[in-house]
C-alpha cells in the first residue's frame, strides 16, 4: 500500500544543515497496522510529514499504491489527502463550531459529496467507535478520548488507502488511550484499514502488527508481532531499553 524508498530529508537553519532522515526505506502492506517508535527528535514527525507531503523531501520515493505522490500538483495532492489519506493528529483538530457528527462528515463535505450516503457512513462509524450517543455534542462538551475517536472516525470517512496518525494518544490519559487504540484496532479488523501510526507509547504500539524503531534518522530495527500482545509488549520494552542503554554508553 505504502512504499518509502531511500527517503532523505534535512532542515536548513542559517548556514547549518541538519540531516534528519537519512535513507529511510520501508513498506506497509494492505490492512497492516504499523507503528513507528523512537526517541524524541529521531525524525518520526518529519517522516510522517514527508509521507503526507506537508513538507517537501530532499530525495527518495513515496509510493501510495505504486503512485509517487510527491510529484503531484497542489490540487491533485489535496485530492489525495482528502480521499486516499486519513489523518489523526495529537491535538485532535476538530472544528469547535460543529457537532461530533458534523465533524466526522468534514472530509466528505470538503468534496461536496451527496449527503444521504455521507450521513449513513458517519452514523455507522460513530456506532463502530461507540460515540453515537454524543453525536450532537460540540467538541467543548466531550472528553479527550471521545474527541480523538471522533477524529479517527473522521479519518475513515472517505475509506482512505492509508491512515496516518501522529501521536494520537500523546495528549490522553491511559484509559482514554486504550479507547482510542481500540478504535484503531477495530478499524483495522472490521474495515480492513491500513494504519501508519507514530507513537511514543509502548503500550499503544503493542497493539500493532509491526513496529519500526527509528534512531538517528534511520530505521534502526523492525519488530513483527507473532504471538500474544503481552508478549509483544515485553519484547518492545526490551528493545527500547537496549537502545537507550546503548545510547548511554
Amino acid at each position: 500500500m505504502l512504499k518509502v524508498n531511500h527517503l532523505f530529508k534535512s532542515y536548513k537553519t542559517g548556514n547549518t544543515v541538519y540531516e534528519v532522515l537519512k535513507d529511510v526505506s520501508f513498506e506497509v502492506k494492505e490492512g497492516e497496522f504499523v507503528a513507528v517508535m523512537g526517541p524524541s527528535g529521531s525524525g518520526k514527525t518529519t517522516l510522517l510529514n514527508c509521507i503526507s507531503c506537508f513538507i517537501p523531501k530532499d530525495e527518495g520515493e513515496i509510493l501510495l499504491k505504486d503512485r509517487d505522490i510527491s510529484r503531484l500538483s497542489e490540487k491533485q495532492l489535496a485530492r489525495v489527502r482528502n480521499e486516499r489519506l486519513g489523518f489523526v493528529f495529537q491535538d485532535f483538530m476538530l472544528l469547535d463550531g460543529l457537532t461530533v457528527f458534523e465533524n466526522v462528515c468534514i472530509p466528505k463535505v470538503i468534496k461536496e459529496a451527496p449527503y444521504e450516503e455521507m450521513e449513513k457512513k458517519a452514523q455507522s462509524l460513530l456506532a463502530l467507535f461507540g460515540i453515537d450517543a454524543i453525536s450532537d455534542k460540540y467538541p467543548a462538551e466531550i472528553s479527550g478520548g471521545q474527541k480523538q475517536r471522533t477524529a479517527v472516525a473522521r479519518a475513515l470517512m472517505n475509506d482512505p488507502f492509508l491512515i496516518l496518525a501522529d501521536e494520537p494518544t500523546g495528549n490522553l490519559d491511559s484509559k482514554s488511550s486504550e479507547a482510542v487504540i481500540g478504535a484503531f484496532v477495530s478499524a483495522s479488523k472490521t474495515l480492513k484499514a491500513t494504519t501508519f501510526m507514530v507513537t511514543h507509547d509502548t503500550f499503544s504500539a503493542s497493539y500493532c502488527d509491526r513496529v519500526l524503531v527509528m534512531k538517528d534518522g534511520k530505521v534502526f530495527q523492525e519488530l513483527r508481532r507473532t504471538g500474544e500482545r503481552r508478549e509483544f509488549l515485553g519484547q518492545l520494552l526490551e528493545v527500547l531499553a537496549a537502545m537507550n542503554g546503548g545510547e548511554e554508553k
Partner: peptide, 16 residues
C-alpha cells in the same frame, strides 16, 4: 488560521 491549516491537512485545496 488554525482551522484553515487543519482543513488543508484534511485535503482542502487552496481554492476551497
Amino acid at each position: 488560521s488554525q482551522v484553515f491549516s487543519d482543513l488543508e491537512k484534511l485535503g482542502a485545496d487552496a481554492a476551497y
